[in-house]
Write a protein that binds this DNA or RNA. Structure first.
Length: 479
RNA sequence: CGGGGCGUGGCUCAGCCUGGUAGAGCGCUCGGUUUGGGACCGAGAGGUCGGAGGUUCGAAUCCUCUCGCCCCGACCA
């Protein structure tokens, strides 16, 4: 709340983002490089994300558990690709209780290994399968370059880990959870996403197949917003996760893992935010409605506050998350701007005139200024507010989708491709060779984001080399 | 790790070149007037200049080293 204005999000998106995170009080910098303190407002948003996801996990048969933070270093080394992928970014504990440890312990960068260890102990028979466990925790990866929410040394997430009797079951689980993430992104966060398969280069260390949902941020760059891995039998073999099948034969399990992190908060900021600040989707917003009372004299204050409290009571009773701004000494205008910056989807203004006429003024966050203002009867406030929240939720999705469509192109040739990918997505045929992928990355900074699951046709030529190609791929610069 | 920028009250920064022992705006506290789109006036509190060492009668200022942060690149959810 220091300077009046944020940096322009069209001119300096990065600085706009940094300042918004701090000023909206989502998070603050920690004393350790690359770490963040999630403040109550940011955590409330995360809790709503957690609830929306956890509901879906439970509905698909998963249960929650907790595995340890510290993992024997040797565990990480059991799966070849996994160790190669993660060893550069491990934080390792070598001293405990003042003494050098016999075996160093790594702070989990992800829990495939420790869970693999546990699953090997627990799974003996096909009757034990499937195992469908999720955990909410934080992990540490020693990233070189960090940014609030998008990439921090420690981040909060959920990681689901499942074990199955067959490849088909594991594949179905992987895809099911991708669908769960898609549903969550679209229906809770109002963020349109493209579910798809990752290229070999972009695949998770130790997975046979990685799927992701990809979203377009307000600057045209892509953000991987959730991932789901089919781990094949890689970890089953490394950790000896085996079961006896119906015929009495010993089989390796098929495992999966899937995760969505606090990075998603970054996505919400960058997809919906505007020049005024955050715009939070009603279904996830810590406060869906803020009531700003307006008065001059003590008598006015008394009647306005009473009416405002009645509004709050009515809305709370209807399970609307509402905040009554009772702060003293701040002008209504200041409060308007403050809550707009913090992204509250709907504002109710109530002053002496409204009390007299039993009305209120409603202001939509997604439509700045007069355009978003309407009057409503106090008696009908619950109905009107609930309907408006649904409308706003939908409007945010529609706007994000329109923006993505406007910035997604199917270039005819490589020259066009290069300019398209400067800001936005290119949907192009790709032959599948890592060489083309690497060259494109070097020449344009754009990487393959995913091979969308939905494909129109199945024939074309690679945008880079002109060789026959079967699938279209999303290319974009990415966070 | 390479390139660039920067560390001075809570925040943004001036002062540094041309050493003399610290300033502004915002925020904060108190009082008053205000309050339908970021109010105003007055009075206060608050820093020894990222850290260490050196030069000097004297260092925020000059020198050396060091730590940290931000931005851009290579790695990543």
């Amino acid at each position: 709340m220091s300077d009046a204005k944020l940096p322009s999000h069209t001119e300096d998106f990065s600085e706009w983002y940094n300042q918004l995170v701090l000023r909206a009080e989502l998070a603050d910098y920690a004393p350790v490089r690359g770490c963040m303190i999630v403040r109550p407002y940011g955590w409330a948003l995360w809790e709503n994300i957690q609830q929306a996801l956890d509901r879906r996990f439970k509905a698909t048969g998963h249960v929650n558990a907790a595995f340890p933070l510290l993992i024997p270093k040797s565990f990480l080394e059991k799966e070849q690709a996994h160790v190669e992928g993660f060893s550069p970014e491990l934080a390792v504990v070598t001293i405990g209780g003042g003494k050098e440890l016999e075996e160093p312990l790594v702070i989990r960068p992800t829990s495939e290994t420790i869970i693999g260890y546990a699953y090997a102990k627990w799974i003996k028979s096909y009757r034990d399968l499937p195992v469908l466990i999720n955990q909410w925790n934080s992990v540490v990866r020693w990233e070189l370059r960090t940014k609030m929410f998008l990439r921090t040394l420690e981040f909060f997430w959920q990681e689901g880990h499942t074990a199955h009797a067959t490849y088909e079951e594991a594949a179905a689980e992987t895809r099911q959870m991708l669908e769960v993430y898609t549903d969550f992104a679209v229906n809770e966060a109002a963020i349109p996403v493209i579910p798809g398969r990752k290229s070999d280069a972009e695949r998770f260390a130790g997975a046979d197949q990685t799927y992701s949902i990809e979203a377009m941020m307000g600057d045209g760059k892509a953000l991987q917003a959730g991932t789901s891995h089919n781990l094949g039998q890689n970890f089953a073999k490394a950790f000896d996760i085996r079961y006896l099948d119906k015929r009495g034969e010993l089989q390796y399990c098929w495992t999966t893992s899937w995760g969505l992190s606090t990075r998603f908060i970054g996505a919400i900021i960058m997809v919906h935010g505007d020049a005024q600040g955050l715009i939070l989707p009603p279904r996830l917003a810590p406060f869906q409605v803020v009531v700003v009372p307006i008065f001059k004299t003590a008598e006015e204050k008394a009647i306005v506050m009473e009416a405002a409290q009645n509004l709050r009571t009515a809305l709370v009773g209807a399970e609307v998350r509402v905040k009554l701004d009772e702060r003293e000494g701040l002008t209504p205008g200041f409060k308007f701007n403050d809550w707009e910056m913090r992204g509250v989807p709907l504002r109710i203004e109530i002053g002496p005139k409204d009390v007299a006429s039993r009305t209120v003024m409603l202001a939509r966050r997604d439509q700045p200024g007069k355009a978003g203002k309407t009057a409503a009867q106090q008696d009908e406030i619950v109905t009107v507010v609930k309907a408006l929240l649904v409308t706003i939720q939908q409007a945010l999705y529609d706007r994000a989708l329109a923006f993505r469509n406007a910035n997604t192109h199917e270039p005819d040739d490589y020259e066009q491709f290069k300019s398209v990918v400067e800001k936005g997505f290119a949907l192009s045929y790709w032959c599948g060779s890592s060489d083309c992928e690497a060259q494109i990355k070097e020449q344009t900074k754009a990487t393959t984001r995913c091979v969308p699951l939905e494909q129109e046709s199945r024939e074309g030529v690679c945008i880079k080399c002109g060789q026959p190609a079967k699938e279209k791929v999303i290319f974009a610069k990415a966070y």
